[in-house]
Structures are given as C-alpha cells and as structure tokens.
Design a protein around this nucleic acid. Structure first.
Lengths: 253, 253
DNA sequence: TACAATTGTGTACTTTATACACCTTTGTTT
DNA sequence: AAACAAAGGTGTATAAAGTACACAATTGTA
C-alpha cells in the first residue's frame, strides 16, 4: 500500500510520461531441462501475484514499450516478445481501480482509469537470465506451470491465452533457438516440445519430423562423458530457422 | 475539410465520450460467387480511402466497440469480427495528425493525438449486406482485392496483415458459414477457398478434404434447372461446424 | 446427333504420420 | 569379466493424408 503522497507523485509522473488507457502485460515462459515455468511478480507484504506489466511512453512504439517494461520490472533484457491479444473488458481492472479510492478520488488517480492491455509472450531459458524484482515487487520468480498461484486482475486469462497462442505457434513456426544451448541433443529438444504441449511424444517420430523441417545441423562428434550411449549433438541452422520463422512450416491449403 | 467550429465541436464530443489513444479499424472482406472484395470508405471531395474505423467509448468493451464502429460507419450490423493485431507505431497517424494543425493547436485537437489501433477483420457475403456511408464519407464501397486504391495512414499494412490472418485461419478453422447460401454446391464452396487463397485448387481433392472435416451435410436432391450436370447441394452441419470452430482442425503435434 | 461444359466418382502414387522392434554404447552391478 | 540397465541410433510395417491424374454422367447448345 502506498502513502497518499507517493500515490500522488506516481500519478503525476505517469500522467506526464505515459499514454493513457493502454497497458502491456508480458507472459514470459521459462524453460530449462524439461521444466517449464512462468515469470511472476509478487507485491510487497502481500500474497498478490501479477504478470509483469506496465505502461507505454507517449512517443514509444509498443514493441519497444513491451521490452522496456519487461526490463524494468524483471531485469530481463533482449527477450523476443510476441504480441498475441488485446484484453479490453472495461471491468478487467475494476478491483485494482478501487484499491485507493478512499485515499484519492478516482478521477484524480491516474492508475484507476480504464486500461486496455496488450498481451505479449516470450519463451526463454530460465537458467540464462536472472530476474530482478523492481521497487514495487517483493519478488520476481519463476513458478511451475502447474503451480501458478491465483493471479490478480485478469492475469489468469492473459496467462492462459498466451499458453494457447504458444502451443498454436508450434504448429507453424520453429521454436527453441535461445532456449536450447548452442549444441543440444535430440532428446533435449524433444523435452522442450513435450513440456510446452504437456504430453509425451514418440522419440523416433519426433526425430524424423523435426529433421524434416531442415532447421537442424548435426555435429560430427557426439557428446562424450555422460553415462549411456553418446548422443549426437545438433545446432540450429540459423538461416533455415529464420526462413521458417517468416515462411511457416506447412502451407495447409 | 472541416471548419474550425466543426472540428472544435467534434473534439469536445470525442474527449467526452471516447477513450483516448485507442482506435479500432475493421477490415471487412466481402465474398460472393467467386469475387472477393474489401470494404472501404472514401472521404468527401477527396480521393482518400480509409478502412472503416473509429473510437472506443469510455465504458465499452472493445468487441462491442468494433461492432458499433462498423455499424456506424458502414451500416453493417451483426458481423462477426475477429481481433487480429494491434498497430502501435507512434508515427502511424502522423500525416493525419498534421492535417488541421494550422486550424487548431495540436494539443487542443483530440484527433491529432497518438492512437493505437486494434485491427479486426470479418468475412461477409457482400450480396447480403448494403453498405451505407456515414456523414464523413462520400462513399462506402466494395473494392476488388486486386484493385485496392492507395490507403491513408497505415491502413494498407492493416489490410495486408488482416489478409494474412484470414489465410492462416483457413488452416485450422472452418470458414464459409454466413458466406454461402443455406445450400450450396461443392464448386461454389471451392470458389471461396480459391478466392481467399488466390490460387486454384484441385476439384476432386478439395471435395475429399473438405468432406473429411465432417462439417457438411449433403442434400437428397441435387440442384436442378441449370445447364450441365445437376450438382449436389450441401449445407453446413452447424453443430460440427461450431465444434470445429472452437477445437480447430488438425492438432499438429 | 455431336459437342462442350460441368460435375460425380475412382485410382494409382507419393508423402506423412503412427506404432512399433532391434541394435549399440556406456556406466554400474555382481 | 559378465550381466544388466538406461539411453540413444536406426529401421520397418502399416495407416492416413496429400497429389495427380482419367473417365463417366448429365444437360443445354450447335
């Protein structure tokens, strides 16, 4: 809970710098070695969880805003964010809007206005980044997908919609660059798909299909040292990968 | 061109009623008997073409806003609109913003502010609806997809992005209800797909594939009276159609 | 009556998808 | 050292889907 002075200061700052009525919320999925998580913020002294979100500067492109917001609120930089939906229910922040209504008249409280929220999602390796909570948050932590706490506002809807969008994306776009180490084994890549889809895939059929996409290069030398048979190492063929990103996989019709 | 008094009046009205910084633009694709068109507005006394767009009322859900805007600007009612993207470049309406800068200082001109635009698209039978221009427009007309005039602002980008979204949709959702008459022949339905995709499909393979989706019922009696062999008539199985709409066609992974 | 246009139906071939089995490698157990 | 378990590479049989065709049936027109 803010003091009245703090609230007024934040309102003035926001009114001056941010575009009114528009916010951005980011759903950052984290993957590492078969585990999938989502990045959440928890406010000070409360058990209230949020997706990292924020506002758009008056002259800022929204893609830049999404990246800046993610950076400011979680410390994560240079993450590829993908716009997926706008959440525009006028009541979506009703509870939030009323929070400070006794302290400051709603008309004077910039944050109590109506906000549409543009949803962005991303998929990162959570071992490659170190989330840092901002001043408003007590913690910024990865939560297992099957252990997501109750979220504030409509953030559960945003989260679920993002997960659907991500799963749909698997069908016509390559995925995994920036998630896998430079070289990785086929079972490791399969884990990624299985984790996102939350189901088991056949080892051999997965291999055939993913190889058919033509976005992988196999290294000469297999990985050594581990227990069991030495697996081959693969890396993404960046050129083909990027091409597949823009062109998509199967044409459909 | 508006007079200064008119502009001031519109600004006041808008400031009072509309959410600042947010607009909606609709890309309405029209289809009938193998022709595909897009609905455009032309301003009075100018050769300036726009997509039908407008603003969101302060307490209005954005889906309702999209429908109201389409109704107000084109007369089209009860059209299923699908949100597909937000266009958030701060310069997207730069030219438009400067239009009245000599008449009214930019700060006082509500319309000269920055607007994000939420894109919606729809697909309708253009024989079933009668577009009516609103007071701002000289005409509201269907234009052939390959004869789209130069569009104002970033409306060409919005149009093209909508077309991509529509084509992508063909791969995992049924389409055509509300576009085809209650009963239609297979070649007629094929025309729809060919027109949207702008390419020829094999007659026989199309039939097999579309029938495999299980969303069509074949009538007992073929159509009579026309020249040539009497074709069978089909209608959409609404239950299966709706199911396919929510579930999607092929799972992919 | 021949013909062109349109539509229905079939079939061979290719490609993908699915469901399996078997072998190799490597560290651990006995 | 031999046996074993676990992980991983590769293959194959079958089914389903996609592609490319050919031919027959119907109907109005030349």
């Amino acid at each position: 809970m803010l003091t009245k002075q703090e609230l007024i200061k934040y309102c003035n700052d926001a009114r001056q710098n941010y575009l009114d009525h528009v916010s951005i919320d980011c759903v950052v999925f984290g993957f590492h070695e078969g585990q999938m998580k989502v990045l959440l913020l928890k406010t000070h002294h409360e058990e209230k969880w949020y997706l990292p979100g924020g506002f758009v500067l008056k002259e800022e492109p929204i893609e830049m805003a999404a990246n800046r917001i993610l950076m400011e609120r979680t410390g994560l930089d240079k993450i590829f964010l993908q716009q997926f939906h706008v959440f525009g229910d006028p009541d979506r922040s009703k509870f939030h809007n009323d929070l400070y209504k006794d302290m400051l008249p709603t008309q004077e409280n910039w944050f109590a206005g109506r906000f549409l929220s543009i949803g962005y999602y991303a998929l990162v390796d959570f071992f490659e980044v170190t989330p840092q909570p901002d001043q408003f948050s007590e913690s910024c932590t990865w939560r297992d997908l099957d252990d997501v706490p109750e979220l504030q506002l409509d953030h559960e809807l945003i989260f679920k919609t993002a997960l659907d969008a991500l799963r749909l994306q698997l069908n016509y776009q390559p995925i995994g660059y920036n998630l896998m180490p430079k070289e990785f084994t086929m079972p490791e890549l399969q884990k990624l798909y299985e984790t996102i889809l939350d189901k088991k895939l056949d080892r051999r059929n997965f291999q055939r299909r993913i190889l058919a996409f033509g976005i992988l290069n196999r290294a000469e030398q297999p990985r050594k040292g581990g227990a069991h048979k030495a697996p081959y190492l693969y890396s993404f063929d960046l050129e083909n990968y990027r091409h597949a990103l823009t062109e998509g996989f199967k044409g459909g019709w």
